[in-house]
Amino acid sequence: MKTITHESHTADVQILVKADTMEELFEGALDGMNRILKADIPEVNITKNEKFEIEVGAPDQTCLLIDFLSDILTESHEKRRIYSGLKILDLKTSYIKACIYGIPVESFDDDVKAVTYHMAKVEKRPDGKWQTSIVFDI
């Protein structure tokens, strides 16, 4: 179970992602970013659509999430695709390996310039839920 809510930010777009597990937090954050890029995300067929393997190492889990999203955003811009299919192969505090499946789109709704570290803090709350805010530079 994961939720994504939009929070107020004067110039950019800020979301709050909550999830039961760290895997779901990564899925929710990717979903949140993709929905800024494109409100109507096309259905991904993981057997047919283009995939690439992503591997990211980072000093901590907050950097890991932001760097993971940044790498996918770069691919989205370069290939003009929405990578909405995610299969996590390995996830540790400072390492992720995953397969990402993308589908071509004509255009994006918003120009997401970057995924920022500002306000981001991946943490496990006392209620056992994982959460973080993420600010996207628009």
């Binding site: 980072a58 000093p59 907050t62 950097c63 760097d67 940044s70 770069t74 970057a114 995924v115 920022t116 570290y117 500002h118 981001a120």
Partner: peptide, 22 residues
């Protein structure tokens, strides 16, 4: 994007801390 990521890890080598990761 590339260099803000590089600096996340590089700054500790210079004994620097910032109040905000950005």
């Amino acid at each position: 994007t590339d260099y803000i990521r590089i600096m996340q890890t590089a700054m500790s080598r210079y004994g620097l801390k910032s109040p905000d990761r950005e």
